[in-house]
Design a protein around this nucleic acid. Structure first.
Lengths: 129, 129
DNA sequence: TTGACACATGCCAATATCGGCATATGATGC
DNA sequence: GCATCATATGCCGATATTGGCATGTGTCAA
């Protein structure tokens, strides 16, 4: 096999490449939330989330491929359920920033800090969005 | 009907639509991680993460638009820094699944649970496989 | 077997991405 | 002024997504 001659142009990563990409889609997040209350067949999901059945199936496919849901055959139905383990790495990654979001630089904080510093020192500024 | 006749086909949500989409890109995650150790100018980011300067700028633009980084002018440079507050909602959303990732349904767990339920109740059902 | 139901998949059009390269904007310094 | 460094942006091609609709596969029940 010729080894990937041209991987030069890679567009956005596949939604199936990892959980980060999979949960970037709001509807897929909705599915996951809904599944917290228990297993559900595709049609029920589609109905409750007001999407068409093919859409639900497609989203579920993505979620399956990254291992966030699993299903169980039950007669004609396929009961989809959570497999939330895949969310754990995300939680941990994001948690790595926990110490930083106390010090969030919103404009207000920034302003207050600037004032305090100004009181202590000479007036100085160069801050802007 | 001048008003949005066709919003029928909406492709993948913009990376700038929210933090979930912004951090779906690995390089942007790398930028955020790197910025934990302090503010950095664009060129330094590009060098350390082995990307071109335009790429770094583009990724930073996305991160700015969703409010995950801010910058400060310093002469010719723009010092980019974290604004991690936007990660908090993500952490909370994902955290909502914490109770589920102890009970990850691998096939073994499922089997054990099925056995236990069978012991407790009568074979009642529509439960299969 | 035939029909009904549940679900998956294929194709389409529209869109937005990402990387590469060139170029524009902006501030600094001579 | 002009050259230089730092950054942003524009255009391109390639790719993959999303929604809609139609259709295929598979299961159950008369």
């Amino acid at each position: 096999m010729p080894i990937s001659a041209y991987d030069a142009c890679m567009a956005r990563a596949a939604t199936t490449s990892d959980a980060f990409n999979a949960i970037a889609e709001p509807q897929r997040r909705d599915i996951l939330v809904l599944l917290r209350s228990g297993e559900r067949p595709v049609t029920a999901l589609a109905r409750d989330l007001r999407m068409t059945q093919p859409q639900a199936s497609k989203h579920l496919r993505v979620l399956r491929q990254v291992g966030l849901v699993r299903f169980r055959e039950a007669g004609k139905q396929r009961l989809y359920g959570l497999d939330a383990g895949g969310l754990r790495p995300i939680h941990e990654w994001v948690g790595g920033f926990e110490q930083f979001w106390g010090e969030t630089f919103d404009r207000l904080d920034q302003y207050v800090q600037a004032l305090q510093q100004a009181k202590q020192e000479a007036p100085r500024d160069d801050d802007e969005q």
